[in-house]
Design a protein around this nucleic acid. Sequence first.
DNA 1: TTCAAACTTGACTATTTTAGTCGGGTTTAT
DNA 2: ATAAACCCGACTAAAATAGTCAAGTTTGAA
Lengths: 141, 141
Amino acid sequence: MRLTSKGRYAVMALVDLAKFDNINPVSLRDISLRQGISLDYLEQIFSKLRKKEIVQSVRGIQGGYVLNKKAKEIKLTNIFDAVDEKIKTVQCKKESKKGCNGKPIKCVTHNLWDELENHITNFFDGKSLEDLVKDNNERRF
Amino acid sequence: MRLTSKGRYAVMALVDLAKFDNINPVSLRDISLRQGISLDYLEQIFSKLRKKEIVQSVRGIQGGYVLNKKAKEIKLTNIFDAVDEKIKTVQCKKESKKGCNGKPIKCVTHNLWDELENHITNFFDGKSLEDLVKDNNERRF
DNA sequence: TTCAAACTTGACTATTTTAGTCGGGTTTAT
DNA sequence: ATAAACCCGACTAAAATAGTCAAGTTTGAA
Ligand code: FES
Ligand code: FES
């Protein structure tokens, strides 16, 4: 089990954005340079973030992106959800009657995985972008 | 992020084994049939479990595998560790001074991921094979 | 003593996921 | 006009996953 770069990049980029969008929109080029993330990849990520209304775009020269909500109101679960970073522990469809092996009863690990999934979701739901920005400012940069 | 089948299979197989090894060793063929897991794949998994001394093998006809410890003493972390199911959240080398992007400072998400990793590890460390067997017996089968 | 059930080992492979890249756009401040 | 920026879809290389396959060895029981 591992978290993927997509989710990590999304969080890194949004923290960067939250720190710098006070006055002007922030261009992906700047984020790319500061965070060391491929520009083309960032564009894919921000396209998703925009569709989920986490950021707004400003087109044209001097354009970029701005947060669409207060940093306090953006939870990590929202971010992960937007970029399709799945916290997927159970293998079966949850609402299905069938288990992961096609049998008509859930497998012995099902409840366990499900419980873990809740743990993780709660963890990410308790963290906002603001928390991360603060945390980051404290340890300087 | 997702847990892989390897870890899930290992746990399923060991619960099965724990339930049936009271008298005789349990053959992988039986586990394969009961749990719907490829026999060849199970062999790979049990080879690892044996090397980490979680199970013992009994060769020859009527052979199979038996637990090498009390079910109570086998934690899920031990199982995952044995089959190389990694709970890997941070992307960088933890002990390295460098961050995941090669910069000389850890990225903004590092602490967060690390904290999550501890959460998950604690969760799995608190669950023994015995717990799962009990849980499984309660809901009948 | 022969046989088949079962473990043992290592290599090979197909599928899926990830992490990009690439090539073309469109918009808009200057 | 032009260049900085966003926008979009298709393509691809690399890695991880989930197996498969082939060729053994061991040993209880008929
Ligand atoms: S994970 Fe849901 S039935 Fe196995
Ligand atoms: S995950 Fe450790 S530095 Fe980014």
